[in-house]
Design a protein around this nucleic acid. Structure first.
Length: 597
RNA sequence: GGUCCCGUAGCUCAGUUGGAUAGAGCAGCAGAUUUCUAAUCUGCGGGCCAGGGGUUCGAAUCCCUUCGGGAUCACCA
């Protein structure tokens, strides 16, 4: 449509004003719904060359275009806006093509470069919470969207399985655990380990209080509690590969992994490869040493290694401690380089990490570039905002953390209640019903988290449960279910017919139908835009808009019962295609579509 | 203090390569087909797009500035 109209405008300008359009003078936009037309030419920029008023320019162009260009059937001019209507043949031709194309909007698999998407990347000392849900849904969805536009995508996470935080849980478990295991307690592994992390903090706080009472400063006390000393000793023996320590570490980590695995399963996310910080930090140290040798970095008198980024507008940044141990950024350097080695065809990496680490990634990418990795320029920090509670940030110490498992369960429970009120599920087995509640509950949760622009902080109020009506996942699901119900009903009496074979050449669409077709026409553009901005929210809004337009159509048009055969066929096709686009769009958000609800 | 992000209806959010009368949902009010699934649809009310200045035919959108919220600037992760 843009191509047709663009060419027609150029031709008209050339014929009428004998000038060629300059870059940027052609401004096309979708016609606002209160005016008649499909696409609008903004005339203001053209008045200089026409030497006419905006209205007269629009009239002249409109006349010329409707006379000369195929598929442009009507025009009207309002102020400086030339509204053009595409012909019925154009729309039917488009819809017919889309209908026969099962991959409508999608690019061929592996037709674009190979990218790596990192997401989740939790610490192994605490269970996953609401913030992780946003991270996981975002990372997974962006991966699917990139695949849809042709990229080969490798989904990874880096597991922060090393460091003082793990040792804290280990120490507390040794001190207070009495050998408790997930089996003996019935607790999920990650929850059990998280419990001892909290225990550590409690004991540490109590011991600090005593020390302060004895005259220590707060700072000293924080370092000197017996339990903190114990944790640091644990870290040293871990780094020294002490057998007993490593065994305990492995055991407790494996509990956490089991717990995470079931949470990931419930979330519906997965990974192609895992990286463990306990492996990659060594790699990072080597890379830093190499950078030092090549002159990219420098060493201070005390032995610590730094990079100077002052001429880039940033500060100096430490990369390796004076005692030679690795830092957070050390392992990230190692991990990044390792990944490029593991996948030589990798074009770039996307890091799904909260916006509080923007500075960190800015530094990381500059370091990689200094080390000679040209691909670092393409790397992207997919930064997202916090999920805030009404009282502010989530704080584990204040018990205001919204646990991921709990929240997912609650959503399924709400789905159960709502479904019970609706009472449309007779005849389903209990297991089918439970699966359905999960699907609906997760749709509500994912849609809620993904429909907001990732870069913005967002609010979640646990007291008001997430909605199932209006601009929500279940509401879009419901529209899909409705399309399937219509198709099923028609198939009952017409077993040999498929909507894809509908014949509507002699049918004239009404307004509601045209609105749906025109929305479907936007799908490929929306998908590409969402991929290039790494923003699943675009797709969420699109799916909702399409569902809404279909509902409006559905409300005042019969499909199965429609007497006129052309109308009936067209509407079946419309119903079929709407359902298909919604299903594909929602799939890219990680949201499944039920057949009934 | 430096840097970055955000501020749009009572609430949660759309809308920024500058375009027409700033849109949805929720909440509130008033209605609708008792069905091809009402988790729907139709209507009403609700806005100095944080404030001020500038750029221009035109600004929620770009620039400057003030205010408010958040993040970050560790040999923490």
């Amino acid at each position: 449509m843009h191509a047709i109209v663009g060419a027609a405008v150029r031709q008209a300008c050339s014929d009428l004003f004998s000038t060629d359009l300059a870059e940027g003078q052609l401004q096309l936009q979708k016609t606002r719904k209160e005016f008649e037309g499909d696409i609008t030419v903004v005339v203001f920029p053209l008045t200089k060359m026409s030497k006419l008023s905006p209205e007269a320019t629009g009239e002249a162009l409109g006349k010329h275009m409707t006379d000369h260009a195929h598929h442009i059937s009507k025009f009207n001019v309002v102020k400086g806006f030339l509204n053009l209507s595409m012909s019925a043949e154009f729309w039917k031709g488009f819809f017919s093509d889309a209908l026969s194309n099962d991959d409508f909007g999608f690019a061929a698999p592996n037709s674009a470069s190979h990218v790596m998407v990192e997401y989740s990347s939790p610490n192994t000392n605490k269970p996953l919470h609401l913030g992780h849900l946003r991270n996981n849904f975002l990372g997974y969805s962006v991966s699917e969207i990139l695949k849809a536009v042709g990229h080969r995508v490798t989904k990874v996470q880096i597991i922060n399985d090393r460091g003082i935080h793990i040792c804290k849980s280990m120490v507390a478990w040794l001190n207070y655990g009495n050998g408790e295991t997930p089996e003996s307690s019935g607790l999920k592994g990650d929850k059990l380990v998280g419990k001892y992390y909290v225990e550590f903090d409690k004991a540490h706080k109590a011991q600090m209080k005593e020390l302060i009472a004895q005259g220590s400063t707060e700072e000293q006390a924080a370092q000197q509690t017996a339990i903190m000393q114990q944790a640091q000793e644990m870290l040293r023996s871990w780094e020294a590969r002490d057998e007993e320590t490593i065994a305990l570490w492995s055991k407790m980590n494996s509990w956490v992994y089991d717990g995470f695995a079931s949470t990931y399963k419930a979330m519906g996310v997965d990974f192609d490869k895992l990286y463990f910080e306990s492996n990659t930090y060594i790699n990072g140290k080597e890379e830093v040493e190499k950078g030092l040798a090549s002159g990219a970095f420098f060493q201070k008198d005390d032995g610590s290694i730094w990079i100077d980024l002052t001429d880039e507008g940033l500060d100096q940044k430490a990369l390796l401690r004076k005692d030679g141990t690795a830092m957070y950024i050390t392992q990230d350097i190692g991990t990044a380089i390792l990944r490029f080695r593991d996948y030589p065809d990798l074009a770039y990496q996307i890091y799904t990490v909260g916006n509080e680490q923007e500075y960190h990634f800015k530094v990381l990418f500059k370091i990689l570039k200094k080390l000679g990795f040209e691909k670092a320029e393409q790397c992207y920090h997919l930064s997202y905002g916090m999920v805030e509670l009404p009282e502010g940030k989530m704080k584990s110490r204040e018990g205001t953390v919204v646990d991921a498992d709990d929240l997912m369960h609650e959503m399924a429970d709400v789905a159960r209640e709502v479904s019970a009120e609706q009472g449309k599920l007779e005849g389903l087995a209990e297991t089918e019903k439970n699966a359905l509640y999960d699907t609906i509950g997760m749709a509500a949760l994912k849609f809620f988290l993904l429909r907001v622009d990732p870069k913005k902080n967002m609010l979640f109020d646990p007291k008001e449960s997430i909605d199932f009506n209006g601009n929500t996942g279940p509401s879009v699901q419901y529209t899909f279910v409705r399309t399937q119900a219509v198709l099923r009903r028609y198939a009952e009496g017409n077993s040999g017919f498929h909507p894809k074979n509908a014949d509507f050449t002699n049918y004239a669409m009404n307004g509601a139908e045209a609105d749906v077709v025109s929305k479907i026409y936007e799908w490929p553009t929306v998908l590409r835009g969402s991929a290039s901005s790494y923003n699943p929210a675009d797709i969420a809004h699109y799916c909702y808009d399409l569902a809404k337009l279909y509902n409006t159509f559905y409300h005042d048009n019969q499909v199965v019962r429609e007497a006129d055969e052309h109308a009936r066929h067209f509407r079946l096709a419309l119903t079929y295609k709407t359902g298909a686009v919604i299903r594909e769009g929602m799939r890219l958000l990680g949201i499944g579509m039920p057949d009934r609800m």
